[in-house]
Amino acid sequence: MQKIFRLSPAAFTARAAAVVLLAAALGACATSPAPDSPGAGTSLNQAQTGGPGRWELVRWQQADGTLKSIPHGDNGQPIIFEFNSGIDSAQGTVSGYSGCNRFTGGYGKTATGMRFDRLAGTRMACIAPGGELESALLKAMQSPFVTVGTQPSAGSTGRQIIWKTVDGDLLQFVEREGVGRRGAKMDAQAVASGVEKTVYVDSQRVDCSGVGRQTCYRVRENPGAPWTLWYGPIEGLDFEPGVAYTLRVRETRVENPPMDASAIRWQLLSVESRTRAN
């Protein structure tokens, strides 16, 4: 028996809005203005909301028309850009999640769209597909984006924008509320209290590269998982080289962190075990 799927009115409206916006963007690609030509930029000021802006990458169409698979919904942690002064601000700082790591940097409006600079981020080891997607995104951000389509808020769908990369790819972002995964709202108390977790810390710190050369912890959240690098401090830990630790920590998100600091904070709650390495 053939199944018939029906969209709710809200879902239908959101789907239709995305189709219209993409169609407008594709049309604009054929007649897009020369980079940095005066007045070529598209603005969302008619739907401007005050304060920071949080945007999720929901669609990546490559220049040949094929789509990249990107995480969103229940398919993993979404790719998020957080603009500290809003997307319509002339300039500011941007931070977010790029597919495997957190990143920070600067942003500024151009006559045709948006540029990013001074990008830095954590350097956790990444495996496909997250690592490949992150590499492609960070490479694309090295050149300015051209705005080829915008749409004000339509009910619950949020404002939308499509940027064109220097290679001709189209990146569609939707404005989201709140913090955390999948655009879920989280109140100030939840952000402040964070979440508790168990982490395993290796017996030696290692050289690593962030904004500059530094020393990092090797950590993991499962005894059988591969080690990853932790660039920030573990607040309250009196680390002794040659001793491996099992720790209970509180993890909280840092709002608008400095460019050379992590967006995630670990505070020691208890030392569950100490094991001296052989």
Rank of each mutant, 00 (worst) to 15 (best):
W163S: 09
W227P: 06
I80N: 10
T147W: 09
A16K: 12
G106Y: 09
T13C: 06
T147S: 15
L268W: 12
S156V: 09
N45G: 09
G65A: 05
A184E: 08
G212R: 09
S273R: 05
A190Q: 15
D36A: 10
I4G: 07
A188W: 04
P223H: 07
T275L: 12
S37M: 15
S153V: 14
G96H: 02
T246H: 01
G212N: 07
G92S: 06
E134D: 06
I234V: 13
E82G: 10
D36Y: 02
M124T: 03
Y245R: 02
K185I: 12
A11Q: 06
E251A: 14
N256I: 04
Q151F: 06
L237P: 08
G168T: 09
Q48G: 03
T165Y: 01
S153C: 10
V179N: 08
L138Q: 13
R123V: 11
G96E: 00
Y97Q: 05
G178D: 11
P78I: 10
T110P: 03
K139Y: 10
G73D: 11
V201E: 00
D74V: 06
Y107K: 03
C29P: 03
G131E: 09
R6M: 06
P226I: 05
T198V: 13
A18M: 12
P241H: 06
L268N: 13
A111M: 10
W266Q: 08
V211K: 07
G65H: 05
R15P: 00
G53H: 05
Q61T: 02
V19P: 00
E134F: 04
T147F: 13
P152G: 15
T252N: 08
A140W: 06
R159T: 15
T112R: 03
S98L: 04
R253S: 12
D64C: 02
F81D: 14
S135Y: 00
A47E: 13
E82Y: 07
M186P: 01
Q160D: 14
L269V: 11
S193M: 14
T110D: 02
C29W: 04
K109R: 15
P152I: 15
R205E: 04
G99A: 04
V206Y: 00
Q61Y: 00
E272Y: 00
I234N: 06
V249N: 05
P258K: 07
T66W: 06
A40M: 03
M1D: 13
N101A: 01
G210R: 05
